[in-house]
Design a protein around this nucleic acid. Structure first.
Lengths: 247, 247
DNA sequence: CATATTTGTGTCATTTTGCCACAAATATAT
DNA sequence: ATATATTTGTGGCAAAATGACACAAATATG
């Protein structure tokens, strides 16, 4: 146990002391990792001293922005091929969270001083990710924080401007699913039309006529029906579909 | 004349020597400034030694990202209240243009050395701006480069990855005008439905049925018809419209 | 004054959408 | 075993939106 603690502690100190050399300054990547479970949109959050934050990180000096986003998502979920979209940039002049970092680091027993690189101003490149929640293995970061799913409609107290970022991601997602079919990334590889229907209702926060929705989706000709219906359904077994690869 | 040259020269040296202190490192802002004239979409470009670049700049350490974009646009056009949208981030690992800067600066008679801050890697925050072309006063930058409008469909040789950025802006604009009425920002304050019709045809690169287009636009109830028709029209004088402020 | 072009608007067929109906499938209750 | 309630797939029709064409008013040009 002491060994594990030391190991984690070393990681944090390395991060605080050497991050300046490893990462581009003034730029961060934050990811609203979205899942869908029990008929609710979920977002993956990390806890720090009773408040929660979005998974995030910094861009390596020899790493592309999109690779950084993929890496952060992989670190928190274990997933390798996520659907990721950069949906907004938060670039306010005073977007700097020195006082919050001071409080959190001191509370967690780490050294803090005002010259630490993380106290600077950061432009946040905000992504959302659409993942199948059951495939994710939520994993805390170098602080070994609790990492858990929360309802996007009912966020806990959030650090920094992360509540705003999370809510903006939903606004963008609402727009995006009208332009392009990406929502199925929130479902298992094989899914049913009733599942997709409920998902869209939750994203858009309004009722969608079931019959018309199903006809519309199938008319797009981007989903293929599988030979076997879904086995573990309570009543009539719905057909299973899969997104067609390559047109 | 020598005084002006000296003044400009000083500005460039200050920019090269002190930029590091004034601006956030590794982040740039590039703007695809779009206009519409003679039935063509135009983009404002700056010439450097026979090749052309998008207007751009850097984010002041005490300036928001969006203020930086507004400032860059104001510097090149004199316009104060542009329609601006951040449409993409170009963040490749090797997005660094040291060799192009070396060639350009040397050709223009400036000192160059590999440690200049502009030789670093830059993440480009790419905006497009929709402006009324007649209101703009194109103005070259600190290098007093030629600054001129070019057809977006027929770009001259471009520096860096700016051809890609310019073309991506059109892809995004095509999507955006289907979601929200923003295209009128490319027209004069008072415009006609035939003008708006031709504009949309140019943006979308396809024919749009005139009658249906006009009915559709008017049914949105976001434009108000002015009492007087457009005076300087060749045949039948079309009605003038204006975007309704505040709903 | 005739002609050609541009603009505004009407009409109608086609397509898409919203809404309801109903039967098939199937777990649960009786 | 049979009835019941729920879920799912699909049909049908009215309403709305769209596409295509028609045509007259306005007006510069010859």
């Amino acid at each position: 146990m002491p060994q594990i603690f030391t190991f984690v502690f070393m990681d944090v100190q390395k991060f605080l002391n050497q991050g300046e050399k490893l990462y581009l300054p003034n730029v961060s990547v934050d990811i609203v990792i979205l899942g869908f479970k029990d008929g609710e949109l979920k977002v993956l959050l990390l806890e720090f001293e009773g408040s929660w934050a979005l998974p995030g990180g910094y861009v390596g000096k020899d790493e592309s922005v999109s690779d950084a986003a993929v890496r952060v998502l992989e670190e928190r979920t274990g997933l390798q091929q996520p659907y990721l979209r950069l949906f907004q940039v938060f670039g306010d002049r005073d977007r700097n969270f020195a006082s919050e970092f001071e409080r959190l680091l001191k509370a967690a027993g780490y050294h803090w001083n005002k010259d630490l690189w993380i106290n600077g101003r950061f432009i946040s490149l905000a992504y959302y990710a659409l993942i199948h929640i059951e495939d994710a293995r939520p994993t805390g970061g170098i602080f070994s924080q609790p990492c858990a799913w929360h309802n996007l409609d009912d966020l806990p107290p959030m650090l920094m401007d992360h509540a705003k970022i999370a809510l903006e991601s939903r606004t963008q997602l609402k727009r995006d699913i009208g332009m392009e079919q990406i929502s199925f990334n929130l479902l298992p590889e094989e899914f049913t039309m009733p599942q997709l229907h409920k998902l869209h209702e939750r994203i858009l926060e309004r009722k969608l006529e079931r019959s018309r929705f199903q006809k519309k989706m199938l008319s797009l000709d981007i989903f293929e029906r599988l030979p076997e219906p879904k086995a573990d359904a309570p009543r009539r077994k719905p057909f299973l579909y899969r997104f067609k690869k390559e047109g």
